[in-house]
Simulated assay, not measured.
Amino acid sequence: MELDVLKLLERCEQVAYYQEQPAMIPYTFEGRSRRYFPDLLIVTTDGRGLLLEVKPSDRMALSINQAKSAAGLAWANSQGLGWLVVSDRHTFKDIEEHVIPAVGWQVLDNALKLRGALTWRDLISLRSDNGLTGFDVTAYVVQSGATLDSGYRLTARTV
């Protein structure tokens, strides 16, 4: 996916230059200090700059990637840069704005309340039984504030 983005940038007349992994951004996740290196800095011919992270849509919802994204956004803003997280089809903003069918939202909410956590297998079953798409589930995770670990185990947001 990153290679595809680089190929597009090479052909884009509005891009003056780009740099891979241009900065180290500190962030905290699960109580530990960590470091994050965004994929690209893009500078346009009119002098504007944009930090870009390339992730598959479903991986954007992982809690660790959301923490990295929040840190990236804050850092980019402090530097006067834009911030964008993209996949091959979607942006993080698309996920935030996606309208999940009300029935689907309720199904996921109820399953989480009943079970406490949902495994990847549970999610696949809920999707097929209720006509939900993978994008619906990804959007639910982001919009509800639920947590999704790297094993795709979904847990309700803890307040």
Rank of each mutant, 00 (worst) to 15 (best):
M1I: 13
E2V: 09
E2K: 15
L3R: 15
L3E: 13
L3A: 11
D4P: 08
V5H: 06
C12L: 12
E13D: 13
A16L: 14
Y18F: 15
Q19K: 12
Q19V: 15
Q19P: 01
P22G: 04
A23H: 13
I25A: 00
P26R: 08
T28C: 07
T28K: 04
T28G: 03
F29D: 04
F29S: 10
F29W: 14
G31T: 07
G31E: 02
R32N: 09
R32T: 02
R32V: 00
R32Y: 03
S33F: 06
S33E: 15
R34L: 13
R35S: 12
R35H: 13
R35I: 08
Y36C: 00
Y36S: 02
F37Y: 15
D39S: 08
L40Y: 09
L40V: 04
I42C: 05
I42E: 00
I42K: 02
V43D: 07
T44L: 13
T45C: 07
D46C: 14
G49K: 14
L50G: 04
L52W: 02
L52V: 15
E53Y: 01
E53P: 02
V54S: 00
K55R: 11
S57V: 13
S57P: 00
R59I: 13
M60Q: 11
L62H: 12
L62E: 14
S63C: 05
N65A: 05
Q66H: 03
Q66P: 07
K68A: 00
A71S: 09
G72A: 06
L73S: 08
L73I: 03
A74T: 11
Q79H: 13
G80W: 11
L81Q: 04
G82V: 01
V85T: 12
S87Y: 11
D88Q: 15
R89H: 14
R89V: 03
R89G: 03
H90E: 05
H90M: 05
T91M: 03
F92D: 04
K93M: 13
D94E: 14
I95D: 01
I95F: 04
E96W: 08
E97G: 01
E97A: 13
P101F: 03
P101T: 06
P101S: 01
A102T: 12
V103C: 08
V103P: 00
V103D: 09
G104D: 10
W105N: 04
W105S: 05
W105H: 10
L108Q: 00
D109I: 02
N110G: 14
K113L: 12
L114Y: 10
L114F: 12
L114S: 13
T119Y: 09
T119R: 07
W120R: 15
W120H: 12
I124E: 11
L126D: 11
D129G: 12
G131P: 01
L132T: 02
G134P: 08
G134M: 06
F135Y: 05
D136V: 02
V137E: 03
T138N: 08
Y140Q: 03
Y140F: 15
V142T: 01
V142Y: 00
S144V: 10
S144G: 09
G145F: 07
A146L: 04
T147K: 06
T147I: 07
T147W: 06
L148C: 07
L148A: 09
D149G: 03
D149S: 10
D149K: 11
S150L: 12
G151Q: 12
G151C: 13
Y152K: 11
R153L: 11
L154T: 09
T155L: 08
T155I: 09
R157W: 11
R157I: 07
T158E: 10
T158H: 02
V159S: 14
V159C: 09
V159G: 12
V159D: 15
